[in-house]
Amino acid sequence: MSIRILTVDDHPMLREGVAAMLNAETGMEVVGEAGDAEQGITEFRRLRPDVTLMDLQMRGMGGLNGIRTIRGECASAKIIALTTYRGDVNVREVLGAGARGYLLKTALRAELMDCIRRVHAGGRYVSSELCAEIAAHAGDEPLTAREYRILELVAEGMENKRISSSLGISVETVKSHVTRIFEKLQTHNRTEAIRIALRRGLLREPID
């Protein structure tokens, strides 16, 4: 029997391209498509596919929460994140939510097929280039909840005084937290800290 696949992505052309590619592969069949996570959840409940391909960057609840919801309802669900996000933080978060695979949209056709077959068989799959990124930061000290919030406010363009007022803490405390953020991200300025945080998945760019 063919592997029954559900694709969830907000770009119709990408869904069509993936569907055409998968339907042309022996032993695979796209049985449903969805344009956002909410619709993806509905289609998963209706179709019970063998494998679900889930984009992460979508309007509404987003792919990560979509994965969490589906896995919460069906622990045996086999979900692969098919995304443009390359950050090690993204990968760990998505796998922690219950996804069995993590693949970049730039992956070659053969890798996509291999990933689907491996996940369908009960295994896991993460792109090799992402495994290297995860390994590079395996021993890093994570940001605390307070540091993460300050990083978000820094990314919004707030200066230390405004952050101090927003969080109800002293300016000196803000400066101390910013210094620790820089140390953990191995940088010395705000612009570079934001760039690194976006690349690794600590921060995400807004959806247009």
Rank of each mutant, 00 (worst) to 15 (best):
R4H: 12
I5M: 09
D9K: 15
D10R: 09
L14Q: 10
E16R: 15
G17K: 09
M21R: 13
M21F: 10
E25M: 13
G27Y: 13
G27R: 14
E29C: 12
V31N: 14
G32T: 11
E33P: 12
G35F: 09
G35S: 11
G35D: 13
A37S: 14
E38K: 14
E43Y: 12
R46L: 14
L47T: 10
D50I: 11
T52Q: 12
L53C: 13
M54R: 11
D55C: 09
L56N: 09
M61T: 07
G63N: 09
G66P: 08
G66T: 07
G66N: 08
I67T: 10
R68F: 07
C74G: 08
A75R: 14
I79Q: 04
I80M: 04
G87H: 05
L95Y: 00
G98K: 02
G101P: 06
G101Q: 07
Y102P: 04
L104K: 07
A107R: 01
R109L: 04
A110H: 11
E111K: 11
R118T: 10
R118V: 05
H120D: 09
A121W: 05
V126K: 00
V126F: 02
S127F: 02
S127K: 06
S127C: 07
S128C: 00
C131A: 03
A135T: 00
A135F: 03
A136W: 08
A136K: 13
H137K: 05
H137N: 08
E141Q: 13
P142D: 02
T144Q: 08
T144F: 06
A145Q: 10
E147G: 01
E152R: 14
L153C: 04
V154M: 15
E159A: 15
K161A: 14
K161C: 08
I163F: 05
I163H: 03
S165K: 11
G168Y: 03
I169H: 07
V171D: 15
E172N: 12
E172I: 12
T173Q: 12
K184D: 01
Q186M: 06
T187N: 01
H188T: 13
N189T: 02
N189Q: 06
I194Q: 00
A197V: 00
R200V: 08
R200H: 01
L202F: 00
P206M: 01
I207G: 02
